[in-house]
Design a protein around this nucleic acid. Sequence first.
DNA 1: GCGAAATTTGAACGCTTAGTAGAAAAGATG
DNA 2: CATCTTTTCTACTAAGCGTTCAAATTTCGC
Lengths: 211, 211
Amino acid sequence: MVQNLEKLEVGHKKEAKPGRVRLTQKAIVEAAAALFARAGFGATSLDDIATSMGVTKGALYYHVKNKEEILRLIFLTVLVVSEEPLQHIVEAELSPVQKLGRAIEHHTAVAADRSPAMIVFYREQVHLTGPFAREITLRKKKYERYFEQIIEEGIQAGIFKSDLPAKIVVFGLLGMCNSLSQWYKPDGKFSSQQVAAVFVKMVENGLMPYA
Amino acid sequence: MVQNLEKLEVGHKKEAKPGRVRLTQKAIVEAAAALFARAGFGATSLDDIATSMGVTKGALYYHVKNKEEILRLIFLTVLVVSEEPLQHIVEAELSPVQKLGRAIEHHTAVAADRSPAMIVFYREQVHLTGPFAREITLRKKKYERYFEQIIEEGIQAGIFKSDLPAKIVVFGLLGMCNSLSQWYKPDGKFSSQQVAAVFVKMVENGLMPYA
DNA sequence: GCGAAATTTGAACGCTTAGTAGAAAAGATG
DNA sequence: CATCTTTTCTACTAAGCGTTCAAATTTCGC
């Protein structure tokens, strides 16, 4: 545990032997996310993770402080790819409708292609302890509040109905998108963009054409 | 483990000492659901469950085969309160719009007031093993198919838009309702009926009033 | 109250696991 | 090749857990 930052990939660096991935924090986190997603945090041992990477347990502890830190890192990667793009959408010069559309597309995309990490994110939060657990809750709330802002903005502008409480709408919306991580298969019939498009239509105009 | 059926509550039966609940399968399942919901299945020990009921670990084994059976029973209780009412709605003499509305109300209500069990239901399925795990998956699918039927019926009747794939709509819909178990507080601002009403409006006509 | 049946206790067992320490190996450097 | 650093392995510890079971206790019909 010497370098906390991943070394930047530089062209001239000697490549590791093909076949076995270089053991690194990022690699561990990815492998662990896949196992946690399949069997759950509690049911996955460090031996399982190590074995799945062709390595023994001891090696993991050189790159990672303990089991919970692996979980923490999974949560962080999800937040890192989620937060900033959403913030940009909210702050952009767009109509509320456009913002909402892009926000849904964004969130759907994240849910679709980070699925192991996302599954863990929505299932294993109880296993976080200490201040970090609180931090995650806060950042989740902040993320929700971005969506709320969009909805409220739309209501103020008279574009969205004013009789639907923004909080509930947002919860419903996010629940809708989050469900993707449970069922979405990248090799299935629909791309995440197509799914997002369906959700956008649903949320904007509903299922009934001649209201 | 002698009686599989709960004895019916009969008036003249001697009440157990107030304060301590009579130890029974149902009581164990309820207590366990609360603990599992808070800390997760893997992180909750049988000691935790026993202690929370003012009893020792061994006593649980008189009423329950093992830890996983407790989990199985939690899943069963959720299914039991969910399946039949939905089936009745689907088979009733109602318009697709009415059916959809009632189905959403039903599912929302279940998500709202069985919340510990529901949280476990949507989080701990990975810890089920053997044929029962498969059974749950199947029954979940069947439940989804009821919703799908309603949507398809509505499309056929020209009431719902035909360009939105029923499967995706249903997943979104259920994700929306299921999210309730994560955030709904019975003592909060909204009743589950009010939340359901919001969801129904969202799904039927969307957020935009003048489409 | 008595005896039998139902229920609970408490201790023990076997197994798995997170985490540690130090030796060994591999890799880089000059 | 020799030395130093980084990385991995082996072996171990201490703790926690699910499960079992004989004995103790409580309940209940008579």
